[in-house]
Simulated scan of single mutants.
Amino acid sequence: MSQKLLVTGATGQFGKLVLDALLESGKTKPADIIATSRDTAKLAGYAAQGVETRAADFDDPASLERAFTGAGRILIISTDVLDQPGKRLKQHLTAVEAAKKASVNHILYTSMPAPEASVIPFATDHLGTEEAIKATGVPYTILRNAWYMENLLLSLPRALATGRWFSSAGNGRISHISRRDLAAAAASALQSGSTESRTYTLTGAQAYTTDEIAALVTKATGKALDVVHISDEALAGGLKGAGVPDFFIPILVSFDANTREGHFDVVTDNAIAMTGRNPTELASFLETNKAALTH
């Protein structure tokens, strides 16, 4: 039975971190790691370390089956196509079918917390993928990753520049976790050799309201940040006025709505159990990244 570990989307930010975690652990020989991407030239640095690289395109079923053949445990990292409804799920289902045809031993997948209850438009992509994986009969590990701490670096600099953070999240709580901690958990799951089918929700150690996050940001940066609580409709209008693409506005608003309705208010110790270490604290992350927050 093959013990080769395969990572899709290996040129992406998350995929690279998973590869780094696998290599740094010393538990898996580089030759037993397969990194896939549409453009393998971008994986030259990993190839130089002994990692096998293979071409794989989520829009090309044959390329996926070729790439997956001979792999034992594969990590399907969810794609980032959000501007074409239905395409992301189609890509994921293509990858799942290719994994089954390639006779892999175990399928791992990066999902999101509580997709069955979420109001986020792309939650159905994750739920549909989870269901397809379960239907293959292949043992699986579903990694329901909470929101990246790094996502805060996309919105907070603009808010800090004005001192006001417009939000419709109300008093809802969200437990962020760093991308690096999630990648370490994914690498651990890949290397575990487990034959059981399990679903894990991976979160940070604490869930915070928007006001509490703002207070942590102020402490880390020394800059005042007041949360302005508004409706979903007002938030959508503000995003449109800021020039956010129309297709992305409902998605961004749904993040706050999902938080307000409690679907992100979950804290587990799964990340600790899988990595053997405590996840990065939000306060520590903000302090480390205060330059990016105030640029």
Rank of each mutant, 00 (worst) to 15 (best):
S2E: 06
K4A: 13
L5P: 09
L5H: 04
F14G: 00
V18Y: 00
L19P: 06
D20S: 11
L23Q: 13
A35F: 06
T36I: 14
R38P: 01
D39I: 03
D39Y: 04
T40G: 15
A44E: 08
A48E: 07
A56L: 09
A56E: 14
D57F: 15
D60F: 14
S63R: 05
L64W: 14
G70C: 07
S78A: 09
Q84S: 14
Q84N: 09
P85K: 15
K90Y: 05
L93I: 06
E97W: 06
A98S: 05
V104W: 00
N105W: 04
L108G: 11
T110W: 12
M112I: 13
H126D: 07
L127H: 11
E131G: 07
A135D: 13
V138Y: 02
A146L: 09
P157I: 01
A159M: 08
L160V: 12
A161N: 15
W165A: 09
F166C: 07
S167V: 06
S178F: 05
R180I: 04
A187F: 04
T199I: 15
T199G: 15
Y200Q: 13
Y200F: 13
L202M: 05
L202K: 12
L202R: 02
D211N: 08
D211H: 09
A214E: 01
A215M: 03
K219N: 08
T221M: 13
G222C: 14
A224H: 06
H229V: 03
H229E: 15
E233F: 08
K240C: 12
G241Y: 14
V244A: 01
V267E: 02
V267G: 01
T268V: 09
N270E: 06
A273E: 10
M274I: 07
T275K: 04
T275S: 01
E281I: 00
L286A: 10
T294R: 05
H295V: 06
